[in-house]
Design a protein around this nucleic acid. Structure first.
Length: 268
DNA sequence: TCTGACCTGCGA
DNA sequence: TCGCAGGTCAGA
């Protein structure tokens, strides 16, 4: 589920409601989701602490709770809800953060692929590539990366050490709008194509953030409403439907063991 | 570089 | 009942 736009939406909504509020009680219902800390320690370090900051790096959600730094990776189905009844599967709520004003933030994860860590200082994520919506992401460094690698374009976009935050939905959409085949090798990309590719990476992700993410099956915002970006998808999950540009049926292939959707005519 | 494993729910 | 799903990681 959650790629950059969905995690960004969650971060913004948690900030809007819970920032500077004190966490009075933490419940860990599924301790095995905690990767570097025991449930007891997680609770001890966060109870009584104010939520100082909520940010995002790639697909990771970062909190500052007093002097501790919880980090969440939502896997395929992780999500946060402000009210239990807004959760799509309340029976799969693994963490509960009860705040001093009486509100609670619930972490739900049906498939339990999510992971949670607790750090004593802000984590650095040396393994992650550039933030595509930051000033550090430039056409020049994208061209350098493309030259450096020798992989297909779909795999390039999905590899978090190149660009952080892009998953299967947005990789498909970016390649379609860039008119680049998912099977092309990074080193074959021309100067002109790289320029379009660079522009579309930003524009696809920015649009999705503006639309509060894509609700394909599970994703809901913290407030329980659907994202709106699914109405803007051009190819993802549209196999057999006409390409919005040329009318050729969209094809589906498995590439790097992920479903890949593309127009065989428009994307070269 | 690729495959299977980790989980559960849902739709065909 | 089976195949598939937005992600990552270990191991071949």
């Amino acid at each position: 589920m959650p790629e950059l736009p969905e995690v960004e939406t969650i971060a913004r909504q948690i900030r809007a409601v819970f920032l500077e509020k004190t966490i009075v009680k933490v419940a860990v219902n599924t301790p095995r989701l905690l990767k570097n800390v025991s449930a007891t320690e997680f609770v001890r370090r966060l109870e009584g602490q104010p939520l100082r900051e909520v940010t995002r790096r790639g697909k990771f959600l970062l909190w500052q709770g007093g002097t501790a730094y919880p980090v969440f990776h939502l896997g395929m189905s992780g999500n946060f809800f402000r009210r239990r009844e807004q959760a799509t599967h309340p029976e799969h709520i693994h963490l509960e953060f009860h705040f001093a004003d009486g509100q609670t933030l619930f972490y739900q994860d049906v498939r339990k692929f999510g992971k949670i860590w607790l750090y004593e200082e802000p984590p650095k994520f040396p393994e992650l590539g550039v933030e595509p919506l930051s000033e550090n992401f430039s056409l020049n460094n994208l061209k350098k990366l493309l030259n450096l690698k020798n992989m297909n374009m779909k795999a390039f976009l999905m590899d978090q050490s190149n660009i952080a935050g892009i998953g299967n939905i947005y990789a498909n959409e970016i390649l379609f709008l860039s008119r680049i085949s998912p099977f092309r090798k990074t080193r074959e990309i021309t100067e002109k194509e790289a320029e379009v590719f660079f522009r579309e990476i930003r524009s696809v992700l920015e649009r999705a953030v503006r639309n509060f993410g894509t609700t394909y099956s599970d994703f809901r915002t913290v407030e329980g409403s659907d994202g709106q970006n699914q109405f803007f998808l051009q190819v993802y999950q549209k196999a057999g439907e006409p390409c919005p540009v040329c009318g050729t049926p969209i094809e589906k292939a498995v590439l790097n063991s992920r479903s890949t959707f593309y127009c065989p005519k428009c994307q070269r």
